[in-house]
Design a protein around this nucleic acid. Structure first.
Length: 367
DNA sequence: AAAGCGTGGTC
DNA sequence: TGACCAAGCTT
């Protein structure tokens, strides 16, 4: 039982956080920094939206190149709305959580169409768009439209559960954290405040080894006072990750083309591209794998299977390779992708691994 | 409302 | 090396 006497600590002041942000804000491609914003420069809602969708459960490092590529190719919401879905999926390949790309396209069409090219400026209006939930709606409303919306993401959860030593485990503590954030969010500079919370969580109030000496709220932090910062946020125990297994078939034509097909629109890796394969099952019998091959051939299994870890299961894939027989008829929904096209296909990472297991380097863009 | 949904980096 | 983690949303 931990008891923390928070009474003796001064309340965390948003002004102190903003002052810290003025000096230490990260420079990010989608961000208008505090100095510029102070001069009246306002962010482009399209860029804010695009970055927020990409940043969902995804690191800044992973997002940067994708953000730049999207912006180069589709500089505004009208351009994105007019883009073929296939091209958007290809451009998103490798970033993960592919429903985001499908929702991104749908939201762009709604904004460019029904909404007359303008993003909604209210939280509820934003949250009505596909792919925008409570966090993203609040983030866009505050950052792009300067509204005092309470932004609650993983960073905010970590910072506030530490500052206030919230004992309730996540996800149960969410409503409590929301109330704290509503109370703290300032009417002035709410967008900078939101981004300051993210920067604080990302650079100072980190999950491991937080740099409390550098924190503008050090004196107000109950967890720090008790010397137990790292134990927050409390979390419910998580269940073990189950195993699944299957087989994938890498068919290569004489000219080097690889046989591909499109996955169903919904579900795991929905609407993305894959090599033919079996279902992925908790109990997989490798004797029966060849029954699901795209054609009869002398399929050669690689020595080592491909192992890939998804959020909710671990996959072991046996990889088989063969050339198609003469007279092979292309099944519905399949196509031969020439080597030059492979790097640009909408292949998720697990599928690139499968292909690379047989043909190293073939899915990577040459230069 | 709990489960489904990716990937790559870190320690 | 495996567990944890990163600006969550949808059903």
């Amino acid at each position: 039982m931990t008891t923390i006497d928070a009474q003796t600590l001064p309340a965390p002041a948003p002004a102190d956080l903003l002052a810290w942000y003025d000096r230490h804000a990260r420079r990010l491609p989608w961000r208008i920094g505090p100095a510029e914003r102070g001069r009246g420069v306002t962010p482009d809602p399209y860029r804010v939206w695009l970055s927020e969708i990409m940043l969902q459960q995804t690191t800044v490092t992973a997002v940067k190149p994708y953000f730049e590529a999207f912006l180069d190719r589709w500089p505004d919401v009208a351009a994105l709305a007019a883009a073929p879905s296939e091209e958007v999926m290809k451009a998103w390949a490798g970033l993960g959580y592919y429903s985001r790309a499908r929702n991104l396209k749908a939201a762009a069409e709604a904004v460019a169409g029904t909404l007359g090219g303008k993003f909604p400026q209210t939280e509820s209006g934003l949250a009505a768009l596909p792919g925008i939930g409570s966090y993203t709606a609040a983030a866009i409303a505050s950052i792009a439209f300067d509204q005092p919306a309470a932004v609650v993401d993983g960073n905010v959860e970590r910072v506030l559960t530490r500052v206030f030593a919230v004992e309730t485990p996540l996800p149960g503590a969410k409503s409590e954290i929301r109330r704290l954030q509503e109370r703290l969010t300032p009417k002035a500079r709410p967008g900078d405040y939101a981004q300051a919370m993210m920067d604080l969580g990302a650079t100072i109030c980190t999950p491991k080894r937080p740099a409390c000496v550098l924190c503008p709220w050090e004196a107000s932090c109950a967890a720090h006072a008790a010397g137990i910062e790292e134990s927050f946020p409390r979390k419910a125990a998580k269940t073990a990750r189950p195993e699944r297994a299957g087989a994938a078939f890498v068919a290569r034509r004489e000219d080097g083309a690889i046989l591909l097909r499109r996955r169903p629109d919904k579900g795991l890796l929905g609407a993305m591209t894959e090599v033919p394969g079996t279902d992925w099952l908790p109990v997989f019998s490798s004797d029966k794998a060849l029954a699901d091959a795209p054609f009869r051939a002398d399929w050669q299994r690689t020595v080592a299977p491909v192992v890939h870890v998804f959020t909710h299961f671990r996959l072991t894939l046996d990889i088989y390779a063969a050339a198609p027989p003469r007279g092979f008829n292309l099944p519905e929904g399949h196509w031969w992708s020439p080597p030059d096209d492979l790097p640009g296909e909408a292949l998720p990472s697990v599928m690139k691994k499968a292909i690379e297991a047989v043909h190293p380097g073939i899915t990577r863009r040459r230069r």
